[in-house]
């Protein structure tokens, strides 16, 4: 293959029209064509992006600069994943990309081409909460709830991989998810409860009148 400059010209011409076979050997041309078609630049206008969301095939038209989070929330109306920082610093936008938790704010929708995405809306089926979601409610693993979708996604992935995590493993799993209300202790408790472990409560109500020291 030729050097950078001539190759760029080659690709540019391919991008808009056909290239003459005479310019290159026949094998090279068919390989080159296949590759160049695959390597045709898309955008900057809206382009078709197809992926699976919560088991459903979806195709949408978005500019390459649209993030996965913007596409999910804006184009698909899936507002469960939240935009809280838009800079990969808080985890409120977490979704599963091929079962791996990612920050939807920090990848482009076009990068998810062909991928299987699970959002918070895809967990509870027919209104029935998962064991983790149920535990989050019962153990009060939330306050304002804005971080909850991201927390649930990252912990769902943890429990799939590691059904009986230790407290330290749970804490580490949510290291990339911030909660300004400070619900971490109850989120950890909920995760332990969901994995069949006894959650710890550190709250004791005592009567001032009965207490020996009071």
């Amino acid at each position: 293959m030729a050097g950078g400059v001539s190759r760029r010209i080659f690709l540019k011409s391919l991008g808009t029209s056909a290239v003459t076979a005479a310019a290159l050997g026949a094998d090279t041309v068919s390989q080159g064509l296949a590759q160049a078609n695959a390597e045709r630049a898309q955008g900057p206008g809206a382009v078709a992006v197809a992926f699976t969301v919560n088991g459903e095939k979806r195709t949408l038209m978005v500019e390459p600069r649209v993030t996965l989070l913007e596409a999910l929330r804006g184009n698909l109306g899936l507002t469960g994943a939240k935009e809280a920082c838009d800079r990969a610093t808080c985890g409120a936008c977490t979704v599963l990309l091929n079962d791996t938790p990612v920050y939807a704010c920090s990848m482009l929708a076009i990068e998810a081409q062909g991928a299987a995405i699970t959002t918070i809306e895809g967990l509870a089926r027919d209104g029935k909460l998962t064991a983790l979601q149920q535990a989050m409610v019962e153990q009060d693993g939330l306050q304002c709830g804005f971080c909850s979708p991201g927390m649930v996604m990252v912990l769902t992935a943890l429990l799939r991989k590691n059904p009986h995590p230790t407290e330290a493993e749970v804490r580490r799993a949510i290291a990339g998810n911030l909660c300004r209300c400070g619900s971490y202790p109850r989120i950890v408790a909920a995760t332990l409860a969901a994995s069949g472990q006894k959650p710890v409560t550190q709250l004791n109500v005592i009567s001032l009148h009965d207490h020996a020291l009071a």
């Binding site: 293959m1 050097g3 950078g4 400059v5 190759r7 760029r8 690709l11 590759q35 695959a38 390597e39 045709r40 630049a41 898309q42 955008g43 900057p44 206008g45 382009v47 500019e63 390459p64 600069r65 990969a88 920090s106 990848m107 482009l108 076009i110 990068e111």
Partner: peptide
């Protein structure tokens, strides 16, 4: 800002595609 997007199939084409106004995208973080 708006930009175009392409997926490189080889290292060779990646460096020729990127030119002087492009950037490589990997994790994107």
């Amino acid at each position: 800002k708006a930009f175009s997007y392409v997926t490189a199939q080889t290292a060779d084409s990646a460096v020729s595609l990127v030119g002087d106004r492009g950037r490589f995208l990997a994790g994107g973080m």
